[in-house]
Structures are given as structure tokens and as C-alpha cells.
Design a protein around this nucleic acid. Structure first.
Lengths: 328, 328
DNA sequence: CTGAAAGCGCTTACAG
DNA sequence: CTGAAAGCGCTTACAG
């Protein structure tokens, strides 16, 4: 079964390949008789014609592929959801999202040169050099910034706000001596540092002492060590803001192992609202993120960069909020 | 900055494009002088030449892309890990894994025809028709079977064994009246049914009554309803095998809400060994899967199908084992 | 050992 | 309104 080409469709419908192309690509400025159009469309359907992406890409120098580069750390359910939304949103415009979990294997340069994507979406910050090279080659790059950024082509989740929101919540509940449970994975440092900075800033604004920071692995022993440190001294910590829900779950386990009650002795708040958060004992208070809004924004950024957007990207206001449960 | 083509490399090194191609593709059967080879290699490096994937694909009718189609349900950390391993393994052979989270949007047929992948990897069972069409078009399809399958191009995780292993573990711990906590998401039914069938088979073999099945959502209310049902009657359930760790966590929450002790009143075992499992209270006993071995097998299957493998896929024996914690 | 030429399937000026 | 022709960048018989 050889591939069906536009020449086949042309023959079948008795027109030239030019006409087939015009009909199928709904080129405006070119007018085609309704009868002809219908004949072509019918023939294409009958033959099961699908244009060759390779040929099209070679011709136009640009594919329908949006290369989405993931960071090299394990991403988790939040990013999965984000990508799902993104895939759906861009599919409506005929774009396919190609996700690359770039574990540092091979350079990004080789990848994008080989794939010829129509746009590159970075879910983790890129090298300056890489970004520059892609822009040079005319490929729109939608990047990710960790903080507020005025450029619409930069997708920014104000990480600092997340940390700030956690502290505000804990302060409202009457806590004064706070801890920050940081991830132990260095690759998360860029995110964690921003969130921590936000937490620090709010502490300062509210006149609270600096949060006491300790790294927490996703196991009980590590959490116990952190808890002991936090509870030592004259002014023991009474509330912990965790980098995310998994870290918060570890803190919960450490507290439990140390015989401390949550939230009476120590309160805990996470980030992400994973399903395990609401099933934990006690159920975990957390910061919910509007992933779908983020995905829409990202999709709109890509479409804008490609000149395909009807609307410019719209920032939503309710990007985060605290989901109050039993742990605070 | 126009794209660097093989013609540029040819000019720069003073040879023809034919020779450039021969050198760069290490075509055997063709012998090139060392001096020439080196000149070409140098020129390519100097110019930063990357062959156009589009042109190559158009020419050969086959790209370097391995299309990996995910099922339409949320996949979770296990599949993330699997894909990571796969990406790394196939990258060593110059293949890029393109993950498509096909939420049923658009037909698979359109996707593969458009992408021209060199192989398609299905992480969920495909339509007969789709598989057939791809094979017709000469694209190797590595599929997923839910049970043991003798074909090497079929990747099979014997789901039934997972359910069986859970029951064996619970029976060893002295339990006789078992329940099966099924996922409420219909899209998981294919997997859940297999695991349940395995659990049933082992119950029968060991002379235990059939497991009592109830669907459990990832929230407390749903789990409470299931627990009440399981504990009602003359012969209350004393152990629950859950579809996966998340469902098991929900069951734990339901048990807790009902004031039942784990494992004294009711034991619980999950599947996957997610990080929340070891952080739960009590820590969750679960079935660990050798994801890396599965990924290697899958990668080897793809390479074999492509005639690139040195070794045929090797099935590992230790695909699963029980990680015993406090919940059983 | 190396080069000139054809052709993969598409789109798009350019003519009619 | 529609067609003949060129060309995107590559690889590979086919000649030298």
C-alpha cells in the first residue's frame, strides 16, 4: 500500500496538484469553484489522503510540531496535566505537541535543528545561547520565567507568590515561628529558592522572624531530622511551609514519628493539591494552582508567537489559592 | 542565518554532496579516504551542520521519531519514569521519542500518517484496524498487551500477576476474607479487570472466597462507602487489595474515618510504590514494579523491530515484588 | 574513490 | 479560475 499523495488526489478528481493544494489549504486570495472544491475534497476523503508532514516541512521550513522541553527533574502530576491541556488546546490549531524529557542527553541545539519545530516551549529556563540561536533561526521561543515577567512570550508563574501565600495563611492562623521545608533535589533549587524568597518577604512584611530552612527528602528519616532541628531551641517552630505536597507529606510523617500533633503542635501547608494531600492524615492544607489557566496562557502565547491567535494571551487573576484542610 | 545544508559542507570541504552524505552516514560498502573523511567531518563541525530531518524523512520515507502513544487516562509517575528510561535508551540509537497524550482528539491514523514515525509504541492497546494500517504502511508497531503474550513485539506486563501477588501476600498474613478496591475511572477498567482476575484466580487456588469488589474514588466519602459495605454482613472483610497506591491511600482514609485500625482490623496493599505510600500512616505495603526493566524491554523491542538491535529483547524475571510495610 | 542527476511530496510564484 | 515548473535538503543508484 503505497502512500497516497496529492498527485493521486489530483488524478482522482481530474485537477492539478496546485488546485488540490489550494483547496486543502483553504488558501485565501485564491478562489476555487464550489464544484471543483467538492470534487477534490471527496477524492481526498475517498483515498484517505494525509499530506506528508515531511514534505510540507521541507517546503515551508517549518513543521506543525511544537517542541515542548521539560526540565531534567521529575515533573509530577502538575506538569502532566499542563501538557494535556496544552496538547488539546494546540491540537485545535493543527499543532502537535512533542514533549521531550531532556535529561541533559544531547544538546538542545541538535534537537531543535533536527525536528524543525514551528515553536519551542520551554517548561524550564533555557540557556541564553540556545534561546538566541533559535530566535536567530526564526523559531519563536516561549520560555518560562520563575518570577513575574512583562514579556508575553515569557510564561511566568510567580513562584514567590506561592511561598508568600503559604506564609500569609500560616500567619493568619496565628503562627509566628515558621519553617520552610525545601526539596533536597538540587535541580529544584531554582523553584524552591523563589518560593522561599517569597515566604521570607512576607515574614519580613508581617514582622515575623525568618523562616528556618531545612531540606527534606521524601522519606521519614530525613523528615525526622528536620523536625528535630526545627523544634530545638527556645523558640520551636509551630508551622511548616513545604515546597510541595510530597515534601509536606514527608514532614507530616516526620512529625508523626516524633509524636507531635498536627495542627496543634505544628501546622503544615503544601503546594499542588495532589490527590494524596486530601487523603493524608490529617488532610493536608495546600496551595492549589490553576493549571488549566496556565496551560491556556501558554497555548495562547504560542499561537500569538505564530501569528495564529485571535486573542492575545490573557493573564488570569486567580492563579493560586489556599485549600484549607485539617493540617493548619 | 540561513540553514547550513550538506551543500555548504561540500563546498567548504571541496567535495560533492554525495561524499558528504557517505561520510556522515558512515555508509558501509563505500570506502572514503581518511583525509577526505576528516576534511568533511571538520567542515561539518565548523559550520555546525545538522541534517534536516524533514528532507531525510522525505527521502527515506521514515523519520527518526518513535511515536509513543499514551492511553487516555491520567498516567502518573510510573509511566513518566518509563518514558524517561525509554527516551534515554533510544536516544543512544539516534531515535527521538515523541510522546503523544492522545486524549482521543483526532484519530491515531492522522497522527501517524502526519508524523511518519519509524516506529509506533503503544502504551495502551490499539485498535485492530489502526495496528493493521500501520503494519501495512511498513511501520513496526510495538504494542502493549495486558497479559502474557508470546510475541516479542508485544510488551506485556502480566497484570493478572499483580493482583495474584497481592492476594498471596494477604493470604500469607492470615487473611481469608478479601476485598478488591477498583478504580472508579472506566478508562482503567481494562487494567483493573485483569488485576482483579488475577486476584480471583489466586483466591480460588487457595480456597478463599471471592474478593468483594467495590469502586473507590480518590476521596474519603467514596472510600467510606466501600468500607462500610465490606465490613457489613457476617463475614467482614479483613484485608483489601487496591488497584494502585492512590486507591489504597483512599481506602486507608476511609478506614480511618470509620475508626478501624490498620492492619489490625483491616490490612491494605497497593501497587506502584509511589512516594506517598511510604509516607502514609500507616506506611503502605505495596507491589513494586521494575519500571527500568520494562523500559529496557520496550526499547529492545523497538530496536529489534527496526533491525537495529544487537540483542533480542530479554524478559526479566523479577518484574514485581511486594514491599512490606506497616499496612499489612 | 568521487561526482552529476534524479526524485521523495509538497507549496507557490508565475503564466495562462 | 487552473496548470506547468521550480525548489525545499537529502540520499542513492549510476557513471566515471
Amino acid at each position: 500500500m503505497a502512500r497516497v499523495t496529492s498527485a493521486d488526489v489530483a488524478r482522482e478528481s481530474g485537477v492539478s496538484r496546485t488546485t488540490v493544494s489550494y483547496v486543502l489549504n483553504a488558501k485565501d486570495g485564491v478562489v476555487i469553484t464550489d464544484a471543483t472544491r467538492q470534487r477534490v475534497l471527496d477524492a481526498a476523503a475517498r483515498l484517505g489522503y494525509t499530506p506528508s508532514a515531511a514534505a510540507r516541512t521541507l517546503r515551508s521550513g517549518r513543521s506543525d510540531l511544537v517542541l515542548c522541553v521539560l526540565p531534567d527533574w521529575t515533573v509530577g502530576p502538575v506538569i502532566d496535566t499542563l501538557i494535556d491541556h496544552l496538547t488539546t488546546a494546540l491540537a485545535e490549531h493543527g499543532l502537535s505537541v512533542l514533549v521531550h524529557s531532556g535529561r541533559g542527553k544531547g544538546s538542545l541545539a541538535d534537537l531543535w535543528r533536527a525536528v524543525t519545530p514551528c515553536a519551542v516551549l520551554g517548561l524550564a529556563p533555557f540557556d541564553e545561547a540556545d534561546t538566541h540561536a533559535m530566535r536567530q533561526a526564526g523559531i519563536p521561543v516561549v520560555g518560562t520565567a520563575l518570577d513575574e515577567d512583562p514579556h508575553p512570550e515569557i510564561f511566568s508563574v510567580p513562584q514567590a507568590d506561592i511561598g508568600g501565600l503559604q506564609v500569609e495563611h500560616l500567619a493568619e492562623r496565628g503562627h509566628r515561628v515558621l519553617a520552610y521545608a525545601a526539596p533536597s533535589d538540587d535541580r529544584l533549587a531554582a523553584f524552591a529558592d523563589r518560593r522561599l524568597a517569597g515566604a521570607r518577604a512576607v515574614c519580613e512584611r508581617l514582622g515575623l522572624p525568618e523562616p528556618r530552612v531545612a531540606p527534606v527528602d521524601l522519606d521519614v528519616a530525613s523528615a525526622v531530622a528536620a523536625v528535630r532541628q526545627w523544634r530545638s531551641g527556645d523558640d520551636p517552630v509551630t508551622a511548616v511551609a513545604a515546597y510541595n505536597d510530597e515534601v509536606a507529606l514527608a514532614v507530616l510523617a516526620g512529625l508523626r514519628a516524633e509524636g507531635l500533633r498536627v495542627p496543634d503542635d505544628v501546622a503544615v501547608i503544601g503546594v499542588d493539591d495532589i490527590s494524596a494531600a486530601r487523603l493524608a492524615a490529617p488532610a493536608l492544607t495546600t496551595v492549589w494552582q490553576a493549571i488549566d489557566a496556565q496551560a491556556s496562557y501558554l497555548a495562547a502565547s504560542v499561537l500569538t508567537a505564530l501569528g495564529l491567535a485571535h486573542d492575545p494571551p490573557q493573564r488570569t487573576s486567580d492563579v493560586f489559592h489556599v485549600v484549607q484542610r485539617e493540617s493548619t
